[in-house]
């Protein structure tokens, strides 16, 4: 029972960056763009989300006062969003305006973003004389919360009321995004753009603007997911290659979640659980390294099953992967 509870908590913590990456990519794909650069954007978000509070801390310490937790958290959030959005903007400019191939552009963004993350991670580290590590004060901004009254309830408190704030942020974001796609005019317009840009264009929807907005904001959300990796998962220390495949898992989870933000919650929880399973559930005789394969094998199974089922509903937006040429309608 206790092991199961611990596993559930660990699954939520490990699933949050996956959830953010998945949400960002769902938003992007709803506009008809497949951005395979999630891994790269997460790397960019990871380094920006660590560098901003780190540089702020250095400045404040120079003056001799203590850095504020709130400012540190806000800087991490804003910087990671902007970094991810910047990566997505490059992708958007190349695919939407210059009509480059979406697959190759996304892959390039992954190479570029991974390079940027590791480059500046190591650069800041060498400037700091070793490695980048946040002080205790700002690290506490990403520690588990303790909500008076709620966090102390047995089981329930541990299961629901003691995560760091980014977890709640991601869950609320998923619910808001669900509402946005289902119930708002802008959300419906966006879906129309993703399904059939020519018709949306004829109906007076500015296709280019919608595609840019969805891609850039989606990239920003992926960036926040990267920030989670560097601020929570590695607790404010830059670790070389810290995103290591989470971005790619997120791309796959979009399919598992059938482009539905609410279902992404469940998908991220399951895959978060798979990534930490080896610490909680030992199968006798099973080597540790085989556990590492689980999330990837599960992803492959999901890909195969969804491709066999091919239901009419819940499929990828129809125009995904194809660039929209107004002149060639």
């Amino acid at each position: 029972m206790n092991t199961l509870l611990n596993l559930a908590v660990a699954a939520v913590l490990a699933g949050t960056p996956l959830l953010l990456g998945t949400l960002g990519e769902i938003l992007t794909e709803k506009s008809g763009n497949i951005n395979l650069g999630v891994e790269g954007m997460m790397f960019m978000g990871a380094i920006a989300g660590l560098a901003a509070p780190y540089l702020y801390e250095q400045q404040v310490l120079l003056v001799g006062s203590t850095p504020s937790k709130l400012a540190g958290a806000f800087l991490a959030l804003a910087a990671s969003f902007l970094a991810g959005a910047l990566g997505a903007l490059i992708y958007g400019f190349l695919t939407i305006t210059l009509r480059a191939n979406q697959n190759v552009t996304g892959l390039t963004l992954t190479i570029f973003g991974t390079g940027i993350g590791n480059f500046f991670g190591e650069y800041l580290g060498s400037q700091a004389g070793g490695y980048v590590a946040l002080g205790d004060e700002l690290k506490a901004a990403f520690a588990n919360l303790s909500i008076p009254g709620l966090s102390q309830i047995p089981v329930i408190g541990k299961l629901f009321f003691q995560y760091n704030w980014v977890v709640y942020f991601a869950i609320v974001l998923a619910l808001c995004m669900n509402h946005f796609f289902q119930r708002t005019r802008v959300g419906l317009n966006l879906r129309a753009v993703g399904e059939d840009p020519a018709t949306a264009d004829a109906a007076g929807i500015n296709v280019t603007r919608y595609k840019y907005a969805a891609t850039v904001i989606g990239g920003g959300i992926c960036g926040i997911g990267g920030m989670y990796m560097s601020m929570v998962t590695t607790s404010g220390v830059w670790v070389y290659n810290c995103v290591s495949g989470y971005g790619w898992l997120a791309v796959a989870l979009v399919i598992f979640a059938t482009w539905n933000p609410a279902r992404a919650l469940l998908a991220a929880l399951i895959f978060g659980g798979l990534t930490v399973l080896r610490l909680y559930l030992r199968i006798p005789g099973m080597p540790m390294q085989i556990y590492e394969m689980f999330p990837y094998i599960a992803t492959i199974l999901v890909l195969i099953v969804t491709s066999i089922r091919q239901s009419r509903e819940n499929v990828q937006p129809k125009s995904c992967g194809k660039n929209y040429f107004r002149e060639e309608r």
Partner: peptide, 28 residues
């Protein structure tokens, strides 16, 4: 220069971005 070796990836990415972008000016 103590410039991290990941510079290779950054440069490769940049070059490919430019290459992808320039195709547009070849076609249009």
């Amino acid at each position: 220069f103590k410039i991290p070796a990941s510079a290779a990836e950054v440069l490769t990415g940049m070059i490919l971005f430019f290459m992808l972008g320039c195709e547009f000016f070849i076609n249009y």
